[in-house]
């Protein structure tokens, strides 16, 4: 199994079913450190499910996933995989940032409290340190003046930027984005994509599920096209987006472009 590789994320023959519906049918994927992988594909193809298995929000039925050289959700002993306790899974998740389509900010906490919650409670950082770091992050996403606001007082684009800052506060090795701009009004998409591009250029490893083909073309190192629970095609954006070899990829692109 995980022969020491240089990959940040290693996904091997991952299967997942919900009842009788097989949502992931053998996924293999590697992401190198510092790389941006963009996952595209039709609705229901299993993109979100794949992303959620990477930080063990969904358990896989078969196969395994490792992040930064560590198995996610399991401990290997000989030929057996032992499921980890929730506490250990939670600790693993602090190394993996997740940004949701609908932000999922905590509405009863201020922007600052949202950001420092996990560093203080999960990483046991001193509050003062966490606040200082949070202020820097807010500055980085252009919201330095919103620290005391509640999420409900912000626009969708601002909320998503706070959610990104919240994920970054744990200094994760890997960032996962599940359609970060799909819930936004068109004029707010740009400000969020700019923040993500900025992170990409800064060398953060990330996997982004998105329908923004322009973004994929500009930022992705690798584009992955998924359909019906399988990876149909992957490669540099110039290949997958402009010279797809598979008929299904062509059909999908002709619909969204």
């Amino acid at each position: 199994m995980s022969a020491p590789s240089d990959a940040m994320v290693e996904i091997r023959s991952v299967h997942k079913r919900f009842g009788s519906l097989e949502v992931l049918r053998g996924i293999d994927l590697s992401v190198r450190p510092g790389e941006v992988t963009v996952v595209i594909g039709p609705s229901g193809s299993g993109k979100s499910t794949l992303l959620r298995t990477i930080n063990h929000l969904e358990k896989v039925d078969r196969g395994w996933i490792s992040v930064d050289g560590t198995l996610v959700g399991y401990r290997r002993d000989g030929n057996k995989l032992y499921e980890l306790r929730e506490r250990e899974v939670l600790r693993q998740r602090t190394k993996i940032g997740f940004v949701f389509q609908n932000f999922n900010l905590f509405p009863h906490l201020t922007v600052l409290e949202n950001i420092i919650e996990a560093p203080v409670s999960a990483l046991r950082r001193p509050r003062k340190e966490a606040v200082a770091a949070a202020e820097k992050l807010l500055d980085r996403v252009g919201l330095a003046d919103k620290a005391a606001a509640y999420p409900g007082q912000l626009s969708g684009g601002q909320q998503q930027r706070v959610a990104i800052a919240r994920a970054l506060a744990l200094e994760p090795r890997l960032l996962l984005f599940d359609e970060p701009t799909s819930a936004l009004d068109p004029e707010l998409v740009g400000e969020v994509l700019d923040v993500i591009k900025d992170l990409a250029h800064g060398g953060t490893t990330m996997i982004v599920v998105t329908h923004e083909i322009g973004f994929a073309r500009e930022v992705a190192d690798t584009v992955v096209f998924m359909d019906e629970g399988r990876i149909v095609e992957q490669g540099p954006p110039a290949d997958v987006l402009d010279r797809p070899t598979q008929e299904r990829t062509r059909a999908f692109l002709s619909k969204v472009l």
Binding site: N55, L57, E86, R87, L90, R91, Q92, R93, T94, I96, F98, F100, N102, N104, L105, F106, P107, H108, E117, A118, S121, A122, L123, R166, A167, L170
Partner: peptide, 27 residues
């Protein structure tokens, strides 16, 4: 309470009891 709240809290690695006390119960 929206299920996304618990999901976000566990994605952030917030300890289980804290998720309930700090995120779920106040809401």
């Amino acid at each position: 309470v929206d299920s996304g709240q618990l999901e976000a809290a566990s994605a952030l690695g917030i300890p289980r009891f804290r998720q309930l006390r700090r995120i779920v119960l106040p809401q």
